[in-house]
């Protein structure tokens, strides 16, 4: 089927992938992820929910919404939380989180709603499962390996030499030329 298509340069990867507004503070409108690095360099990141109109009136509920947002990844910026990101998608997520907090959903329910759509990738703290077992198990494995190494090193250490016998003491005195 592709033989019927004349050759044109193929565009691979997500370097050109677009988001309506990028991470960090910058003018809105269409800016691609490729320009992101430049934007981040030019625009100092500010706390995203500095806009009071986004916040819930009840400080307790707002604190809960922020706690949830801090656990979720902004999928545009990827190393920023939903709460810290200026990306459009992160703003949408914040709105959804707040509306669900208002309707009385639990933190777990809200995070489950997000992972149902975006998978565990959206969680900044990955859950323990078969895929992440090596990740979470690495400290324990490192500790075990270290412990074994210490035990082996101790076992290999040569025992302290026995004290000199009287005969040896005499030879030593002779040699030292007393």
């Amino acid at each position: 089927m592709s033989a019927t298509l004349p050759p044109t340069p193929s565009h691979k990867g997500r370097g050109l992938f677009c988001s309506p507004s990028p991470c960090g503070r910058g003018p809105g409108g269409g800016v691609c992820a490729a320009a992101l690095a430049l934007f981040l360099a030019l625009a100092p990141a500010a706390h995203a929910v500095s806009n009071p109109s986004e916040m819930l009136p009840d400080p307790k509920q707002e604190a809960r919404a922020e706690a949830i947002g801090h656990q979720l990844r902004c999928l545009v910026c990827q190393n920023e939380s939903v709460e810290d990101s200026e990306a459009d998608l992160a703003r949408d997520f914040r709105k959804i989180i707040r509306s669900r907090v208002l309707t009385g959903d639990s933190n777990e329910e809200i995070i489950a709603w997000m992972t149902a759509r975006y998978g565990d990738f959206i969680r900044l703290r990955p859950p323990f499962n078969a895929l992440t077992a090596a990740l979470w198990g690495a400290p324990v494995i490192a500790l075990l390996v270290g412990g074994v190494a210490v035990v082996l090193a101790r076992r290999r250490r040569t025992p302290a030499p026995a004290p000199l016998s009287d005969e040896e003491r005499r030879r030593l005195a002779d040699l030292l030329g007393s």
């Binding site: 193929s10 565009h11 990867g13 050109l16 677009c18 998608l89 975006y118």
Partner: peptide, 27 residues
Amino acid sequence: YGVPESYLVDRTGIVRWRWAGPLSEDI
């Protein structure tokens, strides 16, 4: 999580494939 994204839906309504980013001839 960005555009373009393409989803192939079969006749029973099951999503069979998703491609995030521009489609290419190879893809």
